[in-house]
């Protein structure tokens, strides 16, 4: 059973979350020493204009370097990228990030669906995504797109989430590969690309 949670060939891991998701990151990130040859891209719903707050909070919790997200920065393995507020985060075929200030999706910008769908298009099966706690339906359509493109999808176990709605909505409307609690999420991330 545990074996099946080891995924390989992963170039990017996306984590999407809303209310109650920061707490999960703060628990998981300090226990990660490095990223095994993949980039971690975090897309959280946040209030506009409070960019540095989230970056600073995350950076003190992890030894992993954080790459500042600007338009067209390359996505490189071993780094954390945090979606800035008030922009949708998209991926180009040359594995660079594009930003977009178009209309909100699911009342959100960044929208998790937008980032997930775009990543699915670019990374296909070399992608994994985790949807965390939240009070919004964002992320479900994105997970579905990732699954259809051959990527691995994970949803936080609703009873381990501070706000169960978002992961619950995903589980009701698509079939994620794994439903994991916080401890299992940490194991999942640690195991990415570890099989020879």
């Amino acid at each position: 059973m545990e074996e099946s949670k080891i995924i390989s060939g992963c170039k990017a891991l996306l984590i999407g979350g809303s209310a109650g998701s920061l707490e999960v990151l703060i628990e998981v990130l300090p226990k990660l020493e490095q990223l095994n040859s993949f980039a971690l891209i975090i897309v959280l719903h946040r209030k506009s204009g409070e960019d540095n707050l989230l970056e600073n909070l995350i950076s003190i919790k992890t030894p992993i370097p954080i790459m500042e997200v600007e338009d067209k920065v390359p996505v490189e393995p071993g780094y954390i990228y945090i979606a800035p507020s008030d922009y949708h985060l998209l991926f180009e075929k040359d594995e660079t990030i594009s930003l977009d200030t178009s209309e909100k999706v699911n009342y959100s910008r960044p929208s998790i669906d937008v980032a997930f769908e775009s990543a699915a298009d670019v990374y296909g099966p070399s992608l994994a995504a985790i949807l965390l706690s939240g009070a919004n339906a964002d992320g479900t359509a994105g997970l579905q797109a990732i699954k259809e493109a051959g990527g691995v999808t994970v949803v936080q176990k609703p009873d381990s989430a501070e706000v169960a709605y978002m992961p619950g909505y995903a589980i009701e409307n698509m079939s994620p590969d794994f439903v994991l609690d916080i401890k299992q999420i940490l194991e999942f991330v640690k195991n990415i690309n570890t099989s020879k």
Partner: peptide, 9 residues
């Protein structure tokens, strides 16, 4: 134009 964004548009 950026293809990722143009696709969505």
């Amino acid at each position: 134009y950026s293809k990722a964004s143009l696709k969505r548009r």
